[in-house]
Each structure stands twice: as structure tokens, then as C-alpha cells.
Amino acid sequence: MMENNQGVLAIIFDLDNTLVDTSGAGRVAIQKVCDLLKSTKVHESHIGNICELFLHKLRHESFDPSEDRTIDDVRIHHWCEALQEARGTDPDPSLASSCYYTWKNTRLQALGLSPEVRTLLEELQRNYKLLLLTNGDSQTQWEKIKAVRCEGLFSALVVGGDHPEQKPALSIFTYCFERLGVQPRDCIMVGDSLSTDIQGGINAGVKATVWINSDSKCIPQGSVTPDYTVPSALKLMDVLAELS
């Protein structure tokens, strides 16, 4: 068993594209929808455009859970609009619903902790308090957590959609520190988003921020700078060794 590093008592992890390959699962799901659309005789020239339109709507989605509709309703509507806009036809709610549930269920089935990441978390769990902090709609993120079967690996699970503010807001980090019973300087923040994970960690005063940069992206000009950059969460042991 490795020794605990002086000063690091807790690790806060993001979920999507940090511990699980949500982008990869999304690509698998979109391919499944393409296959569905081909089978329903949608013209092949429209299929790519329909999926692009849906993904654009998903990226720019705004959802207020206090409204009288679910995230499922909102996303079925994205598909309905995408089908309509790409084909110039009347709405097709039935096909939109089929597209949505094909996309959603395929994406959930494709999500998972790799054996290597699961082993890493089990190893870290022996010496550190681990907390999962994920932004997003409550229903969507809890469905992912359930699909990934990771509840037992963390001292606490925090979904942004259950709180008044999400990352990078200080309030949700303060809540996490309280859940863990630690000070900000006892924690490191690990995530793939400079604007939410890294900015939030810096705002909250954590000991160090670790940016998961799997695509070897350059840090954009004017962006926040992480303390450490690694290609994968599997390199976290190297960071902890440096921090000790």
C-alpha cells in the first residue's frame, strides 16, 4: 500500500471524459441512430445533417428542471427539430422518440469504467477520500453513475443539477469540502474542462489542479492554467508522487 502524500487528503474527480469516455460512447450512440434512420428509409443524404443538428442542440441546451417537462422531453424535441430542419418536412414525434431512446440507451450501455481506471480508484480509495463531482442535469448524470456502477468507489457523489450552482461556482466546491470533512488545501481537483473543473478548483483554493488532456490540446489564450496536465487519469499516481 502506498503512503499518503503529506497535505493531500482528498481527490475530487469529474466524471465525463475524465473517468469515463463519454465522447466515445456518444459516437457509438450516434452511429446506432444513423443505422436506425437508414432502416426507416430516411434519405442517406439527410442522415449526417440530422445527427449534426441534434449534437449542436445538445451542446447549446438549456434546461430548467422546474419547468413542467423532463430532460427526456427536451431531447426528444431536439431530435424532432433536427429531423424537421434537415428534411424540410412536418414533425415526426414517433421517429424523434425512437432516435432519442436509441441514442440515450446506446450511450449508457457504452459507458463504463475501464478495468484500469477501476483499479486506480480502488487503490486511491485506500489512502484518500474520493468524491465525484459532475455537472449536468440531475436525471442524466445519475443515470450515467448508475450505468458506470461506480458508487462504491467514492465517499460522496455530487451532481451539479441537484444544487443551486454547478462548477466552477465556489458554493458547490464548498459543499464538497464539507461532505468530505476537509479543507480546500487538502484536496486536488481532477477534470477535463479548463472552464469548469480547473477554474473551479483554482477559485476554491485546492492544493492542485490536474487537467486531463486526452487529445493533446493546447491551452487556449486567456484560459486558466492547470498545475498539472496528464493525458489520462491513469497518470495520477505520477502527480501524487510529485506532490508528496
Rank of each mutant, 00 (worst) to 15 (best):
residue 9 L to K: 15
residue 10 A to E: 06
residue 12 I to S: 01
residue 13 F to Q: 05
residue 16 D to S: 06
residue 17 N to S: 09
residue 17 N to Q: 07
residue 22 T to N: 10
residue 23 S to Q: 14
residue 24 G to C: 08
residue 26 G to S: 11
residue 26 G to D: 01
residue 31 Q to S: 14
residue 31 Q to V: 04
residue 37 L to C: 01
residue 37 L to E: 04
residue 43 H to T: 07
residue 55 L to W: 08
residue 57 K to V: 03
residue 58 L to A: 13
residue 59 R to K: 14
residue 62 S to Y: 13
residue 67 E to M: 12
residue 67 E to C: 15
residue 69 R to W: 09
residue 69 R to H: 13
residue 73 D to V: 10
residue 74 V to N: 04
residue 78 H to E: 03
residue 81 E to H: 11
residue 81 E to G: 05
residue 84 Q to G: 08
residue 84 Q to D: 00
residue 85 E to H: 08
residue 87 R to G: 06
residue 89 T to E: 12
residue 95 L to A: 07
residue 95 L to Q: 04
residue 96 A to M: 00
residue 103 W to S: 12
residue 104 K to M: 09
residue 105 N to E: 11
residue 106 T to Q: 13
residue 106 T to E: 12
residue 107 R to P: 09
residue 108 L to T: 12
residue 112 G to T: 03
residue 114 S to R: 10
residue 115 P to Y: 09
residue 115 P to W: 00
residue 117 V to H: 03
residue 119 T to V: 07
residue 121 L to I: 11
residue 122 E to S: 11
residue 127 N to W: 00
residue 128 Y to I: 04
residue 130 L to A: 02
residue 133 L to E: 01
residue 133 L to Q: 11
residue 135 N to T: 01
residue 141 Q to A: 06
residue 141 Q to W: 02
residue 142 W to E: 10
residue 143 E to L: 10
residue 146 K to W: 02
residue 147 A to V: 08
residue 149 R to E: 13
residue 151 E to C: 00
residue 151 E to M: 10
residue 151 E to H: 12
residue 155 S to Y: 04
residue 155 S to K: 09
residue 156 A to C: 11
residue 157 L to I: 13
residue 158 V to S: 03
residue 158 V to K: 01
residue 159 V to W: 02
residue 159 V to Y: 03
residue 162 D to Q: 04
residue 163 H to K: 10
residue 167 K to I: 11
residue 167 K to A: 08
residue 169 A to K: 09
residue 171 S to G: 09
residue 172 I to C: 05
residue 172 I to V: 15
residue 173 F to W: 06
residue 176 C to S: 11
residue 177 F to S: 10
residue 177 F to D: 04
residue 178 E to P: 03
residue 178 E to C: 13
residue 178 E to T: 14
residue 181 G to N: 08
residue 182 V to H: 00
residue 185 R to V: 15
residue 188 I to R: 04
residue 191 G to Q: 02
residue 194 L to W: 02
residue 196 T to G: 07
residue 198 I to H: 06
residue 199 Q to S: 15
residue 200 G to N: 02
residue 200 G to R: 03
residue 201 G to V: 08
residue 202 I to Q: 14
residue 204 A to S: 15
residue 206 V to T: 12
residue 207 K to Q: 09
residue 207 K to H: 14
residue 210 V to C: 06
residue 211 W to A: 02
residue 212 I to Q: 04
residue 212 I to S: 12
residue 213 N to S: 07
residue 216 S to K: 13
residue 217 K to R: 10
residue 217 K to V: 00
residue 217 K to I: 05
residue 218 C to G: 05
residue 219 I to E: 00
residue 222 G to L: 03
residue 224 V to S: 09
residue 226 P to R: 08
residue 227 D to K: 05
residue 229 T to W: 01
residue 229 T to Q: 15
residue 233 A to N: 02
residue 233 A to K: 00
residue 235 K to Y: 12
residue 236 L to E: 09
residue 236 L to K: 07
residue 237 M to T: 14
residue 238 D to Q: 12
residue 240 L to G: 01
residue 241 A to Q: 15
residue 244 S to I: 02
